[in-house]
Design a binder for these strands. Sequence first.
RNA 1: GCCAGGAUAGCUCAGUGGCAGAGCAGCUCACUCGUAAUGAGCAGGUCGUGGGUUCAAGUCCCACUUCUGGCUCCA
Length: 580
Amino acid sequence: MIMKNEDKILRIRHSAAHVMAEAVLEMFPDAKIAIGPAIENGFYYDFDLPRSLKTEDLAEIENRMKRIIKENHPFVKKVVTKEEALEFFKDQPYKVELIKDLPGNEEISMYSQGAFTDLCRGPHVENTSGLNPEAFKLLSVAGAYWRGDEKNPMLQRIYGTAWNSPKELRVYLNHLKEVEKRDHRKLGRQLDLFSVHEEAGAGLIYWHPKGARIRSVIEDFWKGEHFKSGYEIIYTPHIGKSWLWETSGHLDFYSDNMYSPIKIDNADYYLKPMNCPFHILIYKTLMRSYRDLPLRWAELGTVYRYERSGVLHGLLRVRGFTQDDAHIICTPDQIEDEILEVLRFSLRMWEAFGFKDIKAYLATKPEKCVGDDKQWDQAVESLKAAVEKENLEYVPDEGGGAFYGPKIDLKIRDALGREWQMTTIQFDFNLPERFDMTFVDHDGKEKRPYMVHRALLGSLERFFGVLIEHYGGAFPVWLSPVQVQVIPVAKEFYEYAGETAKKLMAEGFRTYADLSGNRLNAKIRNAQNEKIPYMLVVGEKEEAENLVSLRDRNGNKKNLIPLMTFVEMVREKIKNKVLL
RNA sequence: GCCAGGAUAGCUCAGUGGCAGAGCAGCUCACUCGUAAUGAGCAGGUCGUGGGUUCAAGUCCCACUUCUGGCUCCA
């Protein structure tokens, strides 16, 4: 039998989950088993156990799994009726629930290996010997609600990873190590980029000078690109009275994510969780003609959203963040061009920051929604047309749109192959209605404009987190907080080093001279650890003829070159936004 | 919020009921030192917070805060 590789690895992982369940049942004969699917890179199984598992238990489960694998049990499939299945699993309440929920026409099958039988659609490897006892590893124990619903009991989930060969397992474990090394929280501290202060509030980010330098470069670039692309930039307040949020509907459908109000002069003010209502108020300060549209208004708008304490995560999940937000307000016949242009803009942005692998997710009309079918169709069509024109791979999510409009989300793949959802381009049929936005059309009649909400980078915090991990802290020169470190070989050359740094600063570079008491080797090492792109070593030879000796962070050297040659070279690299 | 595991010097971590430790970073001093750590010395902690058990608590118990890995959700 020939099977595709993907199919084979799924069988291995799914079978590993069954073997794990068998091992756990050996240790806890009264355990209730829930579900155990194959997932990306591995598998898990959920159990209801008499006691909580410790990390040490994983080793024992692993050993039992190895033994079971070596015992060479075939995986045997058996097709049963619903009644037979219910009878067989009568002591397994989770299985009973699953069986009861199976549609009547579906074939019900069970798979057995050795002493273990599970309700399962399959497929599996033919025999436990199809698993390599040295090519899997149990990774962690975690809590997980039965069927992902927090009203249900919490089960214990064991995560594992399984591969074709021990070598593949080693590669994957190394990948995990690399992920850990690049963790933005770790690099954020090592490179002195940002911090979070528990005593001052979780999920709130402090940007240190070096992180803020990067942010400032990002913001400048972002603003420039927006002006070039026909956007205006606006600024709006951080709080708004309850009238605003009642009108927008946020107090009805978004209040779980909003903070309690602040009382000012007997009125309730809320921290903004979104920028849209503010932008709309600006729109409504004038009568708008079709001649004024499209309007493209962007804001680096800082919003605050309540996130449950358990989900906060470094820069990637926070309670206060700055969206690179914009609203496009246009007439129905402008919408297709506008969407295409936003998408192109977004792709240009990602390219500039070094991300090339991008996938689109298109979410269409859900059952419950506002707006009429014609609007939805046109909106979805314009989204589809745009991704197709750009030859972007896209995954449709039928019925996955919000009640107020369809959207495209872009997921970008980073250097480690992980996908991050960043860009969102979202129609809104709700707010124009609620705020009674209008424009005067050719015929002199007031009509409702289309509104599109979009964030390209998503939020600056989250984007920065992804950027740090993508580059492992070694940013391209144009983004590096320090671009050039001037390193004198001994005290007598400190003056020349200082002058050199001053000249570079005058040329617009971010640069320092290392005038510490350290020795040359230590200075190089420090610059290297800070991942500074360029080091200029200066000593007697350099000072005599106004030269510098270049060493980049990859260790490449170019000795005794004129300072201006270096300046021209780096200027080119910055212009082209290359790594080094 | 829920499940599990953590919180000890600025950082990384050791310390299993009996005098709070190490390395790095910091500070001081010495060293004429060419591409990834020069050496010596000094200083640094209410052991996350509050309560309890004990002759004695970093260590055991309870509550809270917060972090990590998940569940749910999302920029």
